[in-house]
């Protein structure tokens, strides 16, 4: 296979785009996709202070490096989940990455916050993924607001977004469908949130990370074995192989023609949020999900009836 642009031997084949690229031209393609994603949805400008959530995986580190290369004002935020084996490895990767590239980094330790994920897991009756996501989003938002960042960026890629959209659609969850997308405005105690990699697949980001020599944490989370999004990604991989380009078409179609309809419906019937009476975080209840998880960890012994801190009206991103 030859590079579409320069006719050298291709190193990345992209069936979704009916093309292939050599290393140099692929990196140019990647940069252009990121820039296009930012400009199409007006995600941010060079005047913004951007907080980038860094898990240690290929997507978030690739996003951080590319935004830095494009001259944006970026600072990394890593949430140390205190999972034995997994968390120290992920944190080490993030710290080495930021040091290597001279990038600012903030680390929040869940152990110090009384929210170590193994402890949360031990007290839940359900898989821990939902509560873990809730805790991470809470600290992303809190750090962005406390530290006066104007935008919070995450490394969610097209596959992540498609899996989430598929899940939300299967449940016809109007509230989640009303604001899913690469751009979420600052609103009622929520920081502005963006996903600049929304045009790029997980495969494309993995190739970028490899070609840029990004050391990343690729061991799966020891607690994520049954995550439904993994199954949805497999379904969409099969569909994409049969119908290349369908993922991006489906997602863009939703943003242009689906989301506005759900947003109107949610404006009419949606639940109003107010500040948590303990911490001020937006919630549909008197006490937010994270404060309720804290209560459960403090009050209930392991094995007692648990909580999931369920709060279905919080924003998911």
């Amino acid at each position: 296979m030859k590079c579409k642009r320069c006719k050298e031997t291709a190193v990345v084949s992209l069936p979704s785009h009916h093309t292939g690229f050599c290393a140099e031209c692929f990196l140019l393609f990647f940069t252009r996709q990121v820039e296009r994603g930012i400009k199409e949805r007006k995600l941010f400008t060079h005047d913004d202070r951007i907080l980038v959530a860094l898990s240690g995986g290929k997507d978030s580190l690739s996003l951080m490096l590319e935004l830095s290369r494009l001259g944006y004002d970026v600072t990394g935020l890593h949430i140390d989940l205190a999972i034995p084996g997994s968390s120290p490895a992920a944190r080490g990767v993030v710290e080495r990455f930021c040091e290597k590239h001279g990038l600012n980094l903030i680390v929040k330790e869940m152990g110090a916050e009384g929210l170590a994920i193994p402890d949360v897991k031990a007290r839940l009756n359900r898989p821990v993924c939902s509560a873990c996501g809730k805790i991470k989003r809470y600290f992303f938002n809190k750090t962005a607001l406390d530290e006066n960042f104007t935008v919070l960026a995450t490394g969610h890629n097209l596959d992540d977004e498609i899996a989430r959209l598929f899940s939300n659609t299967l449940r016809w969850d109007v509230a989640y469908l009303s604001d899913q997308g690469p751009d979420l405005a600052a609103d009622g105690g929520f920081a502005r949130k963006v996903k600049p990699l929304w045009r790029l697949s997980e495969f494309e980001t993995a190739n970028y990370a490899f070609l840029m020599g990004i050391e990343h944490h690729y061991a799966p989370c020891p607690y994520s074995g049954g995550a439904s999004f993994t199954f949805y990604k497999k379904l969409w991989t099969d569909l994409e192989e049969e119908m290349p380009g369908r993922k991006l078409d489906f997602y863009q179609g939703f943003l242009e023609r689906g989301r506005p309809v759900f947003a109107r419906a949610d404006n009419e019937d949606g639940v109003d949020l107010s500040g948590c009476t303990r911490c001020g975080y937006p919630t549909s209840n008197e006490v937010c999900g994270v404060c309720r998880i804290r209560d459960a960890l403090r009050d209930k012994p392991v094995g007692a009836e648990g909580t999931d801190g369920a709060d279905n009206t919080e924003r998911t991103e």
């Binding site: 296979m1 291709a10 190193v11 990345v12 084949s13 069936p15 979704s16 292939g20 290393a23 697949s201 997980e202 495969f203 993995a206 190739n207 490899f210 070609l211 991989t237 099969d238 994409e240 192989e241």
Partner: peptide, 19 residues
Amino acid sequence: IRPTTAIVVRDGGLLTPDR
């Protein structure tokens, strides 16, 4: 393994599925 779910490397370089 689906081709778009894995990267394949030989001698430090990426390979496309046709190689």
